[in-house]
C-alpha cells in the first residue's frame, strides 16, 4: 500500500489537489474563492490524466524523422482529453466569472450568504 502510494505519487498529489479544490468550491463563501477552487479541482484532473498518460523515456507521437516503433511513443489520448477538459473548464470559468460580476454590480458583495439575506430583505 505504502510502496504503491510512493510509486504513484503524482496521482496521489492529483487526488489530494482534487479534494482541496472540491472542498473550496463547496465550502467557501466568497464567489471568487469558489471559482479558484473550481480551477484547482479541474487542474487536478488534468494532472491525474497527464501523470497516467506519460511513460518515462518515450515521447509525444509527433512524426519528426520517420515513424519509429510503437514503443517510442506515449499514448496521446490522455493528452487529448486534457485539451478537451481545458476548453470546457475555461468556458465554465468564464461563465461563473460573468455571473459573479453581475451579482457584484447588483449587491456590492461577493459573499453568497450575504446576497441571499439581501434577496430575502427585498422580499421578492
Amino acid at each position: 500500500m505504502g510502496a504503491n502510494l510512493f510509486a504513484n505519487y503524482g496521482e496521489a498529489v492529483a487526488v489530494i489537489l482534487f479534494g482541496i479544490g472540491f472542498s473550496n468550491l463547496l465550502l467557501q463563501k466568497n464567489l471568487i474563492k469558489k471559482i479558484i477552487g473550481l480551477n484547482i479541482m479541474d487542474t487536478a484532473v488534468y494532472l491525474f490524466l497527464a501523470e497516467k498518460g506519460y511513460i518515462e523515456g518515450r515521447m509525444a507521437p509527433i512524426v519528426v524523422d520517420g515513424i519509429q516503433s510503437v514503443d517510442a511513443y506515449i499514448n496521446p489520448i490522455p493528452s487529448g482529453l486534457v485539451l478537451t477538459g481545458i476548453v470546457v473548464s475555461v468556458s465554465v470559468t468564464a461563465l461563473m466569472l460573468s455571473l459573479t460580476i453581475r451579482l457584484y454590480r447588483r449587491y456590492h458583495t461577493l459573499d453568497l450568504d450575504e446576497i441571499s439575506t439581501q434577496l430575502k430583505k427585498e422580499g421578492r
Partner: peptide, 26 residues
Amino acid sequence: GRTIEAAVRYMIMSLLGSGLLLIGIC
C-alpha cells in the same frame, strides 16, 4: 437578482457534480 443567484447556486452544484463525474471517468 433571484435568477442570477439561483443560476450561481445551480452552477456551483453542477460543477461539483461534473468534477466528480470527470475524475470518475478518468
